[in-house]
């Protein structure tokens, strides 16, 4: 989801789904669609360092105040919104989450290649995450 992440790939090379924390649970129907209708046979699950979904609870006030000031929400609504969705999107550690999410996707789509990858927002390069 991060604006610092930009891929250098040819046009029409891939379907791209952006999702906070490299968490594809909220986008699962789109994944299924890409496989079933789009013919996708490999998933590059690319997280990135300095991810805002890590320790999301620490950004609660910034989130709430941002919605109040930026979107015109009242405080109660903004707090409820945060409390409803933060548990869904919060991740503990980028690398561990990407590994676990890649394993989940591999179990769900057993014929699909799933690669756990990490984008470094400092140098723009992608690394492979080798599971211990």
């Amino acid at each position: 989801m991060d604006s610092r992440k930009h891929l250098h790939i040819p046009d029409h090379f891939a379907f791209i789904l952006r999702s906070g924390g490299a968490n594809l649970r909220p986008a699962e129907f789109k994944v299924s669609y890409a496989i079933a209708v789009g013919g996708v046979r490999a998933i590059a699950l690319i997280g990135h360092n300095r991810c805002g979904m890590v320790n999301l609870v620490a950004r609660r006030e910034a989130f709430v105040n941002g919605l109040i000031e930026g979107a015109g929400w009242d405080r109660v609504r903004a707090e409820e919104h945060f409390m409803s969705f933060a548990p869904i999107f919060e991740i503990g550690n980028e690398i561990e989450f990407i590994i676990s999410e890649a394993e989940r996707l591999s179990l769900k789509y057993p014929k699909i290649i799933v690669a756990p990858l990490m984008f470094n927002v400092d140098d723009g390069l992608i690394s492979w995450i080798e599971r211990s």
């Binding site: 250098h8 790939i9 290649i113 992608i126």
Partner: peptide, 15 residues
Amino acid sequence: KFRETPIGLLLEYHN
């Protein structure tokens, strides 16, 4: 395991 797959190509294009 990723060579000769779209994952390998992605890494070659990008990195």
